[in-house]
Design a protein around this nucleic acid. Sequence first.
RNA 1: GCGACUGUGGUGAAGCGGUUAACACAGCGGGUUGUGGUCCCGUCAUGCGUGGGUUCGAAUCCCAUCAGUCGCCCCA
Length: 426
Amino acid sequence: MTNYQMPRGTQDILPNEIEKWHALEEYLQKFTTLYHYKEIRTPIFEHTEVFKRGNDSSDMVNKEMYTFMDNGARSLTLRPEGTAGVCRSFVENKLYGSPDLPVKLYYMGPMMRYERPQKGRQRIFNQFGVEVLGVKNPYLDVETIALGYSILSGLGLKDLVVQLNTLGDDESRNNYREALKKHFHGYLDELCVDCHRRYEQNPLRILDCKVDHDHPAMKSAPKISDYLNEESRDYFEKVKAGLDALEIPYTVEDRLVRGLDYYTHTVFEIVSVNEDMGAQATLLAGGRYDGLIEYFGGPEMSGIGWALGMERILLALEAENIEIAKDEGIDAYVLCLCKEAQLEAFKLTTMLRSHGFICDTDYQQRSFKAQFKSVERMKAKIAILVGEDELASHTLSLKKIDTQEQFKIPADEIITKMDELLEERF
RNA sequence: GCGACUGUGGUGAAGCGGUUAACACAGCGGGUUGUGGUCCCGUCAUGCGUGGGUUCGAAUCCCAUCAGUCGCCCCA
């Protein structure tokens, strides 16, 4: 048996939970369609260079990717995130030539990352994300964040916090990075081992450290806001003003740095503060990226996007006791009460289905009692009985479960009767 | 990659070296020869994640391995 266990960090989504997924998927698609986004589907694996770009310092790219050789010499990687593939496609298909920029896209599907699984984190997980490509305008940043916030609050989620920051443009960020290194240089001995690594690879992340969170050097560290050039500062001010205008609540977190290296200017996360969420409470996160489209050989264009973790959304809904989908049950269950009635019951079931009724029947010749329990479990609205009497007299017995009403009708009137009893069906 | 805890039937669990592997729920059959949800009776793990080892004897001890959970790291 053990050999056939699913790989670590993967999951089966079983029939009893699929309705939640359908409901969430449908909700997300409808919501983004309202904002005039269109779906894009890109491959689940890409050439490794799509994700691994030269100087990238993130763990995700450096140690969490499923990379393999494609027969010959090509190195391929199972996508760990959605943005890179979308940008690659944007360039490859020359979508930048669209007369109606920006191009607004959404995607949905599995992402793969080699990580240690825990609550809210699997090796294969599903993301839904949006990308707005081709135009750089702070109001698009605002629109994108507002969309993310509306999606989450529209689900009924309350324990949400929007965290916002800016990384500035390259110039601002480089200056800031140098300033940070200078600042922390003297404290290096007092900081944790991870911070030493961060110091070399991505000094901004030192600010994120939980171990050294309370170290005095953290509080005295320079702030990005002091290193923004005029353009970057101006851009950020407009984003904030736009969010204020739309009355989107947010807090500016100058320690918020995103994991991916391609971000510039606006970065944001929407976090659940519900205590049942565990350590992985970031529901949705994203930011603006200036250099990515160029990297793939496209024009000098900017983009902004975010992704949300669908499993985490489902967890958050559970934590806040929100039902996204309920089991509607079936229209009818056909009980077969004797061997002779089997064919008749089977034919009836098939015929009802062809008229649009969701129904099922017994295939095991179980006892009457057992079949009626199925009626209950399947939440059937109507029980239809086929037995010796009905066969002999060409009739059917019906029981409407919610009212307990019973009927005995000629067999050929079943559809009319069903329609009458179930007014709301499609 | 690091640390801690856990792994017994469809589910929840007791057992912690010698038991026919408790008990409860669910399932199935019956009491009620055609009306469920209550009640009663019966039945339901040749096996205790997997593979080794110790032992006369292992679900119980040891080792390895796989998986889960929680945290760190990281991230959605």
